[in-house]
């Protein structure tokens, strides 16, 4: 796997594309998740960790709007874009039926991704929950390429909800919690002993909101810089409809175009 270092690109200036990508593979993971890999005849556009795509699901009667999906990984060596998707409704089940050679219409790259560490930040913790771990793979790969040794802390309900562990381990030490103790330490990510053993300078997190709030509370209490990736319900994905807003210190901001990644100091979370 090879991911380029995109960190010099200014995200606001990145051109957005509407593309018909071709399915290279569509693999079922642990029963209820799929890992989809797409390619294109053209070189895939530049994308940054934490950005997302709005995908159009054809042939689903209950899916009218596009669906925002995190960019899981971009493999420049094979010109592949990866999505990690949980099967929850009719739309995602339609995605699960796509086969090699099928097309998917995607709009990307959207939003602002994770910011790179400052020069004073060395120990980086990437905390993911469930399918929310998706964008952290690309982030971990980019950080690794920049010379960091990121630490992953991944939580899930049960072992069957842990995804892509081998891939994460390629880029950094990986710790795991499960709520039912079927793998790793029992409990939530914020209960993991690594948080007592090691001091981190920056935390990146993506997953269910209660988990991110608990991580944000831990970061705030310990004075650690922390970025969260939100996934509010959205329509346009471009900052036009103003449906997906979150409350910030500067009023309502669009998760799709001002986020999805926010620093917790800019949000009005009660933590």
């Amino acid at each position: 796997m090879d991911s380029s270092n995109p960190c010099t690109t200014l995200q606001k200036d990145m051109r957005k594309y509407l593309l018909d990508l071709t399915v290279n593979s569509n693999e079922r993971l642990n029963g209820n998740y799929i890992l989809m890999k797409f390619t294109s005849e053209e070189r895939l556009p530049d994308m940054l960790p934490g950005q997302f795509a709005e995908i159009r699901v054809d042939g689903s009667t209950t899916t009218f709007l596009r669906r925002p999906i995190s960019i899981h990984f971009v493999d420049r060596a094979t010109n592949e874009l990866w999505f990690l998707i949980q099967l929850v409704g009719d739309g995602t089940r339609k995605l699960a039926e796509l086969k090699k050679g099928d097309k998917l219409n995607v709009m990307l790259p959207l939003g602002n991704g994770f910011s790179m560490p400052t020069s004073a930040q060395e120990e980086l913790l990437l905390v993911g929950g469930g399918v929310g771990t998706a964008p952290l793979l690309m982030l971990g790969a980019v950080l690794r390429n920049l010379g960091y040794a990121p630490t992953f802390l991944l939580g899930a309900r049960s072992k069957k909800d842990l995804l892509q562990l081998d891939a994460f381990e390629t880029y950094g030490q990986t710790f795991v919690t499960t709520e039912d103790a079927t793998f790793g330490e029992k409990g939530f990510v914020t209960n993991h002993t690594i948080l007592q053993q090691k001091k981190f300078d920056k935390i990146y997190t993506c997953g269910p909101t209660p988990m991110m709030k608990a991580v944000a509370a831990y970061a705030a209490k310990n004075g650690i810089d922390c970025e969260v990736s939100l996934e509010n319900k959205m329509a346009c994905g471009l900052g036009a409809c103003l449906c997906c807003v979150t409350e910030t210190q500067e009023g309502h901001k669009c998760v799709c175009s001002d986020g999805p990644v926010f620093n917790i100091k800019d949000l009005k979370w009660q933590i």
């Binding site: 709007l65 319900k233 409809c241 409350e247």
Partner: peptide, 18 residues
């Protein structure tokens, strides 16, 4: 504008309250 959530997808449409 109104608090989040402001949008819900509905059959062949959506409801908004921006």
């Amino acid at each position: 504008g109104n608090p989040y959530p402001r949008m819900a997808e509905t059959p062949s449409g959506m409801i908004n309250a921006v």
